[in-house]
Design a protein around this nucleic acid. Sequence first.
RNA 1: UCCCCGAUAGCUCAAUCGGUAGAGCGGAUGGCUGUUAACCAUUAGGUUAUAGGUUCAAGUCCUGUUCGGGGAGCCA
Length: 463
Amino acid sequence: MKHSRIKDLLQQETIKESQVNIKGWVKTARHSKDFSFLDISDGSCFSDMQVVASQNLENYKTDISRLKTGCSVSVHGNLVESPGKEQKYEIQATQIDVLGWVDEDYPLQKKRHSFEFLRTIAHLRGRTNTLGAMLRVRNAAARAIHNFFQEKGFIYLHAPIITASDCEGAGQMFRVSVLDAKNPPLTENGNVDFSKDFFGKQAFLTVSGQLEGETAALALSNIYTFGPTFRAENSNTARHVAEFWMIEPEMAFCDLSGNMEMAESFLKYIAKSVWQSCPDDLQFFQKMINPDLFKNLENIIDQPFARVTYTEAIDILLKSQKTFEYPIAWGSDMQSEHERYLTEEVFKKPVIVTDYPKEIKAFYMYLNDDGKTVRGMDVLVPKTGEVIGGSQREDRIDVLRKRMEEMHLSQEAYWWYLDLRRYGSVPHSGFGMGFERFILFITGIQNIREAIPFPRVPGYAEF
RNA sequence: UCCCCGAUAGCUCAAUCGGUAGAGCGGAUGGCUGUUAACCAUUAGGUUAUAGGUUCAAGUCCUGUUCGGGGAGCCA
């Protein structure tokens, strides 16, 4: 007999087949003289399956009464309605086979552990309520993202992970090299000779697939990427990891307002979809981590996002009675405290800020007619801050060249990017969303190290 | 990288003014007829992160280092 997923058994309105087999791990075991209660988890859903085992089972004394947290078992028995209050169904076991015992030093207990401790056992932490729920939510979110774009006819583009251009412009990069670190080949003037390296030049891990995404959008109209990205920045915060996943749609024939509409419906769709597919997991996060979770989700799903230009936002901040640690003025980038004031106190919902001064944004953003601002947009959400950043791209070759000059960027290195503006250039826009940032937002988890299975941060790359 | 705070049993935490390192959970052993982080009893478990210093005496005071937390910068 093929074994059943606990999720499928518990979801039934009525019991269809009473003879069942489940396989999983003991979450808790409560033994008494003549029988035991075992809560079994197979990770398919938040809930465990309660198994009742009586002393009549032949291996009761030898095996079953010795089961404890972490043991793996296969249980055959009758699925029945449970007289207990905490679960709908339970299994009256007719046979329990122990698949794997646990050593005495099994670190997980049936009580709350600190996240800091769980990080030191990241290979086991998926068995806890919180991290298990996170992994299921992550999966549901990833599926929703693909569904959203696929339903709209977007093409999934696999942007390269290794890039030879050192100029993607989004931060410090990790070098990819096969040269002997102790004794690298040198050029005549004493520098490392990367022409002898694997790719014949310097290579790095990607920090963004956007530029490659633009090339595909100018061939296929609408594309998205969803892949790993890497930043070698020495940031030690609850919102940064060195390896994270990013979603970057790019749309031809699309201006900033189309971009905003897409970003907003994108966030609404994923939030709704995760809520529908993981209600128990989100319920748990609401109960244990963030009491405002459902309120925030309703906020994002039902309410239209607020939209303000950067100039208007600065105006609001200047006119507010609040005193900020960092004073704000037109032309300076908004600090965390300013973003939080806008999302949490002024609008109390997600806010899209647009049309930033060109000095504080990337070279590829479309220059407005005022000559001072660019068509960039940031989607800010309460607490988490920026989850999406995007822009209409500069599609006029002369303007783009001038901007690159101003920012001292090598036009030679970007030759293929500039080509897009020479051969059938079209207005196009796109945005990027950090996947783990979204997981933080939708679960209420506070540290990004708990939003990814195996976090990589400065000084730490275990497992 | 900067500022602030912290590190005591496997885990979560106590330890008064500088004066004998404790509890709960987990583990082991035993008990218990429907439990829900079950309950009851017994028991083992410590170089107080690390290296120095002050003192008759340091978990406690001082300095360096490592790691962690909160905030900031950079950003997603």
